[in-house]
Nucleic acid binder design. Structure first.
Lengths: 370, 370
DNA sequence: TTGTATGCGTTATCAC
DNA sequence: GTGATAACGCATACAA
C-alpha cells in the first residue's frame, strides 16, 4: 500500500519524485531525467545506479509535469464514424495498441454522423493539447477539422487530404481488392454481378463503386450486367440492396457489397428468402470484420486491414513530427486484398467445372492460417 | 492560424496563458483561475471581464499544469473484456459520454482475456495518474487490480466487489429480466425451455444461470424440462448450443441465451436447419445489443442498459471521491428488463389462443418508441 | 559527462 | 473579494 495522503492531497506513483530518486542514486535530478529519457550521455555505471533506485522506489515519471515542461502531451486523437460497425472498434484497438507501444495515449471519439458531437470532441482534443489526430471517418468532413488546422495540429485522414500544411492522407487502394473479387467471380463463371454501394455523396463510396465499374468492364460486363444499388453502409442497407437485386430480371448471380455490414444484411435476406449461398447466389463483402469469419456461410470479402490502417496513421503522424518545414503533402498507400471463404462459388447454371476449384481453395487455406 | 512556433517549441491553445488573460482583464492571475474554476467568490463585474478576455484571446486552461498543481489528472480508466462483442463498444461510448460531461477523459483498454494485456494497461493507468477505474470485464480478475488497489485508486467493478477500501460494486439484477423472459415464454405456452449459458467458472454466468433455474422452477419446470448447455459467450458458442438443443428429445420449444451474441449464433443455426423462428422455436437473448434490433427476426432479449451501467459506474467513482473516510462498501443496483420483439411466440403445438396476444404486442411497441 | 538553476502554467496559501 | 507568491515535478540551458 504505497498510496499516501499528504495534507489532503493524494500523492501517486508511490508518491516519489525525481529528486528522491536522485538522492537515492547519489546523482542529480538532471541525471535521473537523462536516464529516464534514454539520453546516451550518461555513464553506464551511473545509469545502472539510477535504474536500481527507480526500481526500488517504484518511481514513475509524472506525465503531467513532463508534458508541461516539454510542451508535448503524448496524447493523440482518434476520430471514427460510428461504434456500431465492428470495423471501428477493431480499428480503435489497433490504433491504441500502436500508439501505446510508443508511449502515447489516445482519446477516441465517435461522431455518429453528428456534427455537434464531432465539434465537441475536437474542442476537447485541442484543450488536451493532443499532438496529432487520426481522422478515420471515411468522410470529407473537413469543416470539422478547421479548428485542428488552425492550431497547426498534425492530421492524418483517409481518402481525402485535409487542406492543411501538416497533414498526411492515407490512400486506400480499393481497386486492388475489388478487382480481385470481380476476377474471382468471373473465374467462377459469374456473368451478372450486382454491386451494393454505400451512400453516394461520399468520396470513399464513389471510389469503391468506380473500382467495381472498372473491374466489371474489364471482364466484359456491360452496365446492365453489373447493376448498382446505393444504400447505407449498414445491416439494413444490405437488406434493401438484397431486395432490390432479387427483383431484377434476369437476376444477378452474385452481389458484391461495399462493406461487410451490408453483406451481412444481404445474407440475412437471402436466407429468409430461401436462396442458398453460395449455391444460388454468391456474396462478397468489403472490410473483413471479425464477424465475417463467423457468419454462415463464412464471408468471402475484401480485407482492409485495421492494423495496416492504424500503423500507417501513426507513421503518418511520426512523419509530420519529424518534418522541419512541412509542406510536401504526403500520401501513404493502403492495400486491400481478397479473402476467399465460403460465400462464393460457381453459379448453378455454369457447367464449366470451375466449382470450388483448386486455386480458390488454396487462397482460402492461406487466409485461415494467417 | 493561431498556432505559433516559438524557439522550436510549439505553443498551443492559442499560445495564450493565464497571465495574458489576467492582464487583458485587468485582474490578477489568481482571479482568472477562480473564474475558470467556477469559484463564486469573484465579483460579478470582474468575472464578466475575465470571461470576455478569455473569449477574445481564445484561452483554454492547460490541463497538464492544472493536473500538476492540483494533483488531479481528470483522467479515468475503463477496462473491458473484448472489442468484438458489440456490448462493449457501446458501453465504452456511454462511459466516455458520461465522463466527458464532467470534464474527464477516459483511457480504454480491452483485455481480450489476456492477462499480460491487462497488466500492461493497468500499468499505463497508474503512470497517467488516473483518478478512478471502471472495471467492466464481468470477470473476477481481481489479481490484476492489485496494483490499482495498492495505489489506492477508486475502483468500480461489476458483480464481484474488488477487495479494496475505495471501491464500489455494481450489482446487476440478472434475475429480474430473466424472470420476465421465462414468464413471458410460459405465458406463450412454452413448457420446455433450454438455457444457453456462458462459461461456468465465472460468477456472472453462474448468476445468470441460477436466475434461469429459479425462474424455470417458479413456472413449474423440472430440470429435464429446462436443460442447460454451457458454452462461450460468442456467436460460435451459440451455434454449439443450438446444435446441442436440437439433438435433445423431446426438443425444447424455446431457448434462452446468456447473451445476445450466443442468440445470434443460435438464430443462424436454426435458419440453416430450416427451423423457423418464432414459429418453430422461440429465442431470447441477453444484453440487447444494437444488432438485436436489426437481426431477423428482431430479437426478444433482456436489456442490460449500457447507459445505466456507465452512469452508475461514474456515480460510484464520484461517491468514492467524496467520501472522506471510505470504508462502508457500497453497491449500486442495475436493473434488467425484458424487451419483447419478434423472436418469441407460442409454440406451434399450443392451442391456448395466446399467440401474439395484446399485452406482449404492447410491450414491443413501448420499446420501439423508447 | 555531470550538476545547478530556471521556468513550464496553474492552483493554493496567505496576506491585504 | 482580491492580489502577491510559493509550490507542483520535471526537462533543459548553461556552467563546471
Amino acid at each position: 500500500m504505497s498510496g499516501q495522503v499528504l495534507n489532503g492531497k493524494k500523492t501517486r506513483g508511490g508518491g516519489v519524485d525525481i529528486t528522491q530518486v536522485a538522492q537515492r542514486a547519489g546523482v542529480s535530478p538532471a541525471t535521473v531525467s537523462r536516464v529516464t529519457n534514454g539520453r546516451s550521455t550518461v555513464a553506464k555505471h551511473l545509469a545502472k545506479r539510477v535504474w536500481r533506485a527507480i526500481e526500488e522506489l517504484g518511481y514513475t515519471p509524472n506525465p503531467q509535469a513532463r508534458a508541461l515542461v516539454s510542451g508535448r502531451s503524448r496524447v493523440l486523437g482518434l476520430l471514427v464514424s460510428e461504434i456500431t460497425n465492428p470495423f471501428f472498434p477493431e480499428l480503435m484497438q489497433s490504433f491504441e495498441d500502436v500508439a501505446g507501444e510508443h508511449d502515447f495515449e489516445v482519446m477516441v471519439g465517435s461522431t455518429n454522423y453528428n456534427r455537434e458531437r464531432a465539434s465537441i470532441f475536437i474542442r476537447r482534443l485541442i484543450q488536451r493539447r493532443v499532438e496529432g489526430v487520426a481522422v478515420m471517418t471515411f468522410r470529407a468532413e473537413s469543416h470539422f477539422l478547421d479548428a485542428l488546422i488552425a492550431e497547426d495540429i498534425p492530421l492524418v485522414t483517409i481518402d481525402v487530404s485535409a487542406n492543411a500544411a501538416r497533414s498526411v492522407v492515407l490512400e486506400v487502394d480499393y481497386a486492388q481488392g475489388i478487382d480481385e473479387a470481380v476476377q474471382h467471380l468471373a473465374l467462377l463463371g459469374h456473368r451478372r454481378i450486382g454491386f451494393a454501394s454505400g451512400p453516394m455523396p461520399h468520396l470513399t463510396n464513389v471510389r469503391r463503386k468506380e473500382a467495381f465499374v472498372r473491374a466489371a468492364r474489364k471482364i466484359g460486363l456491360t452496365a446492365d450486367k453489373a447493376p448498382i444499388f446505393a444504400g447505407e453502409h449498414t445491416f439494413e442497407g444490405g437488406t434493401l440492396a438484397a431486395h432490390h437485386f432479387l427483383r431484377i430480371e434476369p437476376r444477378p448471380t452474385a452481389i458484391v457489397c461495399s462493406n461487410d455490414m451490408m453483406a451481412v444484411g444481404v445474407l440475412r435476406v437471402l436466407a429468409t428468402s430461401g436462396i442458398r449461398v453460395p449455391r444460388d447466389m454468391s456474396v462478397v463483402g468489403f472490410d473483413d470484420i471479425h464477424l465475417a469469419e463467423f457468419i454462415n456461410p463464412p464471408l468471402t470479402t475484401v480485407r482492409m486491414s485495421r492494423q495496416d490502417l492504424a500503423q500507417a496513421a501513426f507513421n503518418g503522424l511520426e512523419k509530420l513530427w519529424s518534418e522541419e518545414s512541412s509542406g510536401s503533402l504526403t500520401s501513404i498507400r493502403i492495400g486491400t486484398r481478397l479473402v476467399v471463404r465460403q460465400s462464393t462459388d460457381s453459379p448453378k447454371g455454369a457447367a464449366n467445372g470451375l466449382r470450388r476449384n483448386k486455386s480458390t481453395r488454396q487462397a482460402e487455406t492461406q487466409t485461415a492460417s494467417a
